[in-house]
């Protein structure tokens, strides 16, 4: 496993040379990511990786993509999506314009999941979905709307468990090893890069989803990101986190109430 001193050298390089600050990322996971990068790109030593990072700016997007975890799926944790469908969307429906922020959305599987639910609730036409991630490369996929066909069986199961009643295959077309999702699902989606470490709030939302992103941050950075969400959420808006993440010990906790069914959905009360 890579040594702490080496990791610090790499992080300092990424921060000073390129403005990507990973210093407050959780260490245990980050070390595994660097190890994986060393293996995937077949570097003989850490020194070679560091040299490449210093001297090849074109290599940077790949480094950022590899250091961050881009594992996501459609309707992951179906009971959470059922809660959104049954308890959150009916509240959002009362707004003339619904603004949603998917923060750290990676390749966009959850953006499409929510778009499908909004469509089924007849709300998509009056919704604006902001989909952001630190990686310029992965968010390209949101525009394409293509996901590996091998995952579709799981997604279909998730969709049905989340309370979906339609034929899931009506939302995509199979193209060889890809499922290409209907373009109308992303008609109201705005895709942009956004770094939760360094970028600011850019709008006010009624719903913010940031699932399994905070687990990669240390406590300090988690609090910073949660404060950013708090500043970006309307009163009575909803914040949705990953299934093992919690608002409990954060500075914004006092203003929020978790839904009664204990899904990881909090409502901003003041």
């Amino acid at each position: 496993m890579i040594q702490d001193e080496d990791l610090n050298l790499l992080l300092s390089e990424l921060s000073h040379r390129y403005g990507y600050d990973f210093t407050n990322y959780a260490r245990a996971s980050l070390k595994r990511r660097v190890n994986r990068l060393l293996a995937v790109d077949r570097f003989a030593s850490f020194a070679e990786l560091l040299y490449k990072v210093k001297n090849d700016p074109d290599y940077l997007p790949h480094v950022v993509e590899q250091l961050t975890v881009n594992v996501t799926e459609m309707f992951r944790d179906p009971s959470l999506f059922r809660t959104l469908r049954e308890q959150v969307l009916p509240v959002l429906a009362t707004h003339p314009l619904i603004r949603v922020w998917h923060a750290g959305c990676s390749t966009g599987e959850e953006v499409y999941s929510l778009a499908i639910m909004l469509e089924e609730a007849n709300l998509l036409h009056k919704s604006l979905l902001y989909a952001t991630d630190i990686n310029p490369t992965v968010i390209e996929n949101i525009r394409r709307g293509m996901f590996p066909i091998g995952n579709i069986r799981q997604y279909t199961e998730n969709y049905l468990q989340s309370g979906g009643r339609k034929d899931f295959s009506s939302y995509y077309q199979a193209q060889y090893e890809w499922a290409k999702f209907d373009e109308r699902l992303r008609a109201n989606t705005i895709v942009a890069t956004h770094n939760l470490v360094s970028d600011r709030s850019f709008n006010e939302f009624q719903l913010i989803l940031c699932r399994n992103v905070l687990i990669y941050f240390d406590k300090e950075l988690q609090d910073k990101a949660l404060t950013l969400f708090d500043n970006s959420l309307e009163k009575l808006g909803f914040l949705v986190l990953g299934s093992k993440e919690n608002l409990r010990f954060s500075p914004i906790a006092a203003s929020y109430t978790q839904l009664e069914n204990k899904e990881k959905v909090w409502r901003k009360m003041r």
Binding site: A26, A28, S29, R32, R33, V69, N212, I215
Partner: peptide, 14 residues
């Protein structure tokens, strides 16, 4: 994962 001697962390990587 073990984040520190007194702290766990989680990860959904591959």
């Amino acid at each position: 994962l073990i984040e520190r001697a007194d702290l766990f962390s989680l990860d959904i990587s591959e």
